[in-house]
Design a protein around this nucleic acid. Structure first.
Length: 229
DNA sequence: AAGTAGCT
DNA sequence: ACAT
């Protein structure tokens, strides 16, 4: 790997660290940003990498179909989801938790190697994630501000991979309320939520439906990798 | 509330 | 702010 060159400059509340170099398997880091503690790599995945991920997700979605979870208040999420790995994240009227099985009863499929490679390349950790949550945002789907806090050990980061249509990420604070920032996430972007940003509130305000041609039917897929136990 | 409604 |  050629040595990466880096420089920094402040952009409003964003600190941008430009970093070029091959990480793994031909995946190239073009740019790294820091936004309210979130490390954003734009884009980690080139078109071939994005297409490879979509292809490796196909059998996963066949084995573990997307479902629309309910939330404790009785509402229904507009995002459809499923998981891969030893644990999958589920929600129903009783609350949020990790389960070893899909709501239909089968074990979750394995996390594809291509996805694990991105985890290891962006975190540098030997430990594998237990869960790859697969969120599908169709037209009009949103997700309110929340923390990822159903895991046992917050010293492990969360890695989020965007595929398909653009999504507007809102980034808040460690507690509800206060000022927030937004940033558009594009296909191939990877966000690492770690360190002080591990419990930062975040959500997705809206999707630019059919802004990408990666998914012919439109929509955004977000892969969220987490160590659960 | 990882939900929605509604107001500023 | 609401309320399963």
């Amino acid at each position: 790997m050629p040595p990466a060159t880096a420089r920094s400059r402040p952009v409003s509340r964003i600190t941008a660290v430009f970093d070029r170099g091959v990480v793994k398997n031909g995946l190239t880091v073009m740019m790294k940003l820091r936004l309210r503690g979130f490390e954003l790599t734009k884009p980690l995945l080139d078109m071939d990498g994005q297409q490879r991920l979509i292809e490796c997700l196909r059998p996963v979605l066949r084995a573990a179909p997307l479902f629309s979870p309910e939330v404790p208040g009785g509402g229904k999420m507009s995002v459809r989801m499923t998981s891969a790995g030893a644990y999958g994240w589920v929600s129903d009227r009783d609350g949020y938790r990790y389960e070893e099985r899909h709501p239909a009863g089968q074990r979750w499929p394995e996390i594809p190697t291509e996805i694990l490679d991105i985890w290891h390349a962006t975190t540098g950790l030997e430990r594998r994630p237990d869960c790859c949550l697969i969120n599908y945002y169709g037209e009009g789907a949103r997700m309110g501000l929340h923390q990822d806090k159903d895991e046992a050990d917050f010293t492990y980061p969360v890695v989020s991979i965007s595929l398909g249509d653009d999504g507007l990420l809102r980034i808040g604070n460690q507690t509800r309320g206060g000022k927030t920032d937004t940033v558009w996430l594009n296909s191939g972007d990877v966000v690492v939520m770690g360190g002080d940003a591990r419990l930062t509130y975040h959500g997705v305000d809206r999707i630019r439906f059919k802004s990408s041609r990666l998914l012919p039917k439109g929509g955004r897929i977000n892969l969220t990798l987490r160590v659960v136990t």
